[in-house]
């Protein structure tokens, strides 16, 4: 993942270095796809919406004001609005307040290295070990359920069940 200073990256992009945007996409795309998937409940649509959010954020980067909040919060709000539009277009019932709140509870957070180590250890200790593998694949490598299912020669719904069980173990282990 790109570890460059975000403020400098944005400054470089605004000065015409479009390629620097790759850094922001690398940093946030996995979480953003999952965030959209949680709202629209369709991986393919979530990827499309996340892509659209990145493009929109790029086109409007000149409006971004880092004194008002982080780039990630802004990006997640943009994506949330696009998800909302998608749900309205498909005439799916949607509670706007819930979705807006969701944007605030799923934006990326920064935690210290000790906490990161604790979480990674908890993932390593998941039993059976395949639970750890699916968590890494889904959250860290950005793979879809179908890609993971392909690897394990199982069904995507089974992968979903494994992830839910793994998260239960993690919550217990991390006292969440």
């Amino acid at each position: 993942m790109c570890m460059k200073n975000e403020e400098k990256v944005i400054h470089a992009i605004l000065n015409g270095r479009q390629e620097e945007y790759r850094c922001l996409v690398e940093r946030y795309h996995k979480g953003l796809i999952i965030h959209c998937e949680n709202i629209v409940h369709d991986r393919h649509e979530a990827e499309d919406v996340a892509q659209e959010a990145f493009i929109k954020a790029y086109r409007h980067l000149g409006m971004f004001d880092n004194t008002k909040g982080s780039y990630s919060t802004w990006l997640y709000h943009i994506a949330t609005n696009l998800c909302l539009d998608y749900l309205r277009k498909t005439k799916r019932k949607v509670v706007i307040e819930d979705i807006e709140t969701m944007a605030d509870t799923s934006v990326p957070v920064d935690i210290n290295e000790d906490e990161k180590d604790a979480i990674r250890r908890a993932v390593d200790m998941l039993q059976p070990p395949k639970f750890g593998q699916v968590i890494r694949a889904y959250y860290w490598e950005g793979k879809s359920y179908e890609e993971i299912a392909d690897t394990f020669e199982t069904t995507a719904s089974t992968v979903g069940t494994w992830i839910r069980r793994a998260k239960l173990q993690l919550r217990k282990e991390l006292s969440l």
Partner: peptide
């Protein structure tokens, strides 16, 4: 949330 913690713990080099 747990999802936020997991995302924040992404090791370097993991990408899509």
């Amino acid at each position: 949330s747990l999802e936020q913690l997991l995302m924040a713990s992404t090791p370097k080099g993991s990408n899509n």
